[in-house]
Amino acid sequence: MPFELNASIYHYSQVNNLIREAIAKGEKELILTGVNGHRYLFAGVSAEVRAKIYGTPGLDLGCFMRGPRLEVFGNVQDGAGNTMDEGKIVVHGMGGDVIGYAMRGGKIHIYGDVGYRVGIHMKSYQDKVPVIIIGGKAGDFLGEYMAGGVIILLGMNTIYPERPIAGIYLGTGMHGGKIYVRGKVKESYLGLGLKPYPLDGDDEKELERLLKEYCDDFQMDLSEVLKEDFVKIIPYTHRPYGKIYAY
């Protein structure tokens, strides 16, 4: 029997305390219902647990967390996966701004659209490669300052058919990592010095591997997703500040 909690009658701090207590008692499966703007759920939780979250978690869901696998049946507000270390967040809905800021590991799968400044300053180190996959469209500054990891933008499950797939300043200041975009992206939307490139064989393998897991999460048809070509955006240098000083 999973640990079940109706969050609607509690403050976020109480919810987190109850979650931590349950985990300390050895619970591996958690179900939270009635979540309505509760901030910081699973903040800093370091454990291999699974949780189903029903409702709309508030700011910074899973920030600094290491290990939990969260499945949200609803939308997530700003900052989900902020500086997250390991684990996974699956969102059966949309995401707000600054999702996955400075994320160092783990995965964030969003079914629909996301807001501004998603995936800023993600970084990878050795075998830790964070991944964000967005099924819908993204606002401005996606992947800004990106230092590592992978962002995949599909533009499929969107409520904004009239908008471009990504906002302006896509990948501005990126000095590591990769952004894959399904279909085409206007060069004028890219950050200074960046260009879209066609995929090579390794990219295609990586993309297929990551998207298979994503499609499994949302019961989507992988072949449908892969029907269209992708482009990749990579940094033009790993040392963007290497040559701007006079000594």
């Binding site: 700003d78 900052g79 902020n82 600054v98 800021y101 160092r104 400044r117 800023i120 300053h121 970084k123 990878s124 180190y125 830790k128 500054f141 800004e144 300052y145 230092a147 590592g148 200041g173 000095h175 590591g176 790993h238 040392r239 963007p240 500040y241 290497g242």
Partner: peptide, 21 residues
Amino acid sequence: ISKTRMIPVGSDAISPAPHHD
């Protein structure tokens, strides 16, 4: 340094002007 900062050897470690959150 790379181990402690958790970034690859030889890459610039850039701290943006603002916290973007």
